[in-house]
Amino acid sequence: MTGSTVLRARGLTRRYGEDDGLVRAVDEVDLDVPAGQALAIMGPSGCGKSTLLHLLGGLQRPTGGQVWLAGHRIDTMSERALARLRRDSVGFVFQSFHLMDELTAVENVELAALLAGRRPREARRRALHLLDRVGLADRAGHLPSALSGGQRQRVAIARALSNEPLVVLADEPTGNLDSAATLDVLRLFEELRTAGQTLVVVTHDARIAAVADRVISMRDGAFADDSQLAGTVHDGRR
């Protein structure tokens, strides 16, 4: 694996069922994601894009094939080692936010850093900085129930950045948002791309392509098209 590649998959496969009920959710996919690239994986519901993202982030085990994250082959890792690698190297953003309802915005963001062993003062300082970065400094003390959907997703993005991950994996991050909130999140992803953050975003929303360096289309568990967008260069930046 080259030093410039954050994610690599070879023959990555995830199947469910057997015989007539066999479903090829991900079907022998090969993928390389260079550092600093913003990749959008698109396709209709059920095409396998979310399953692929979960395999790349170590949230699911593949049926076959190999996947590397940050130079480590993760499909053969123990659960403990895999959890440690996810904590230190991956930021996850989900459609349903997955915030803890009983914690404030700043507590949600700092939790990942605390679990990674950072000192409380350092974790709080980092969390406040990230909330300011996503435009929510004035909402730090609010519970998720007091935030709009777009604000909750921005808190989730701040949380994903808490441990300075090598890659952010986002699963339909605008799926539960209205148009105005979607634009806010898209602008934030554009800022992350410009800053050189490696991003892999799965979506059915064509607007995601506007903040991507590369777009892959999936059909029936496999890649149907892989396009490098105009104006990009080999390190993944425009």
Rank of each mutant, 00 (worst) to 15 (best):
S4V: 01
S4L: 06
R8M: 05
G11I: 01
L12V: 06
V26L: 11
V29Y: 09
V29N: 04
D30K: 07
D30Y: 04
L31G: 14
A35D: 15
T51V: 13
L52E: 06
L53G: 12
L55G: 08
L56M: 09
G57Q: 14
Q60C: 12
P62I: 03
G64Q: 00
L69T: 04
L69A: 00
A70Q: 10
E79S: 11
G91D: 07
Q95N: 11
L99I: 07
E102D: 15
V109E: 01
E110Y: 07
L111P: 01
A127P: 10
A127R: 11
H129D: 15
L131Q: 13
R133D: 09
R133I: 02
L136R: 00
R139G: 06
G141R: 13
S145I: 02
L147S: 10
G149N: 02
G150H: 09
S162G: 12
S162D: 06
N163A: 03
E164A: 14
A170N: 06
L177Q: 05
L183Y: 01
D184E: 13
R187D: 14
L188W: 10
E190G: 15
T194D: 14
T194R: 15
Q197N: 12
L199I: 11
V200F: 00
V200E: 05
H204F: 08
D205S: 13
A209V: 01
A210L: 11
V211S: 11
M218Y: 07
R219Y: 08
G221V: 10
D235F: 03
G236Y: 01
R237C: 05
